[in-house]
Design a protein around this nucleic acid. Structure first.
Lengths: 94, 94
DNA sequence: CTCCTATTTAGATTTTTCTCTAAACAGATT
DNA sequence: AATCTGTTTAGAGAAAAATCTAAATAGGAG
């Protein structure tokens, strides 16, 4: 996992919105496209960036491609930020 | 706090490195510049982006400007990611 | 008040990102 | 095998980001 890829992926509003949608349920690319006011090609581009960051994975069924959130990468980012934040009030200092 | 600004700020390796340095101790702009292989103007630009995102704040002393990490914004980002990640294994489902 | 040191701002350039339309591809259906 | 549906890839253009050098600013120090 490359933090650069993940934070870059998270830095775009369309991509954050896609992730939020995928939190509810997996969706086919076309379903996602339908919810935005941009071309299918553009959504496909955003999905490729999310995929490269490891934030989503796809499963092919019939001629649909379903996208799903990959929580494990989020876990790693959570750890990075947590470490940066450092030891805070509620926690035990060594 | 705008997530766009924060994630954009975190998406650059130089800026992430600056934050990591600031975790240890506050630093003057010049000290930061000394640790990178880019011009002072460039670091100043990165600092302005971190400041805009609320990830750092500055305190002026003599003719130095010291930069410090602002953990509270990290806290908010942590919450956003946590919410996106959703309910996971160890937690109680409602 | 002039000079020095620390830092930022301005302006220009290169690179990267986002978006589009059009074309290609992949898999099912007829 | 021809076609239709869902999606991606290619190529191009516009906008935003990152970097540089040079100039400006701000605050001490002499």
């Amino acid at each position: 996992m490359a933090y650069a890829d993940v934070f870059k992926a998270l830095s775009d509003p369309v991509r954050r919105e896609i992730l939020t949608m995928l939190k509810e349920k997996r969706m086919a690319a076309g379903e996602i496209v339908a919810r935005f006011d941009v071309s299918g090609a553009t959504i496909s581009y955003h999905l490729s960036i999310l995929k490269k960051a490891g934030l989503v994975f796809e499963t092919r069924e019939k001629n649909f491609i379903y996208y799903e959130l990959n929580a494990s990468v989020l876990e790693e980012v959570l750890l990075w930020i947590h470490a940066l934040r450092g030891v805070s009030d509620g926690e035990i200092k060594e």
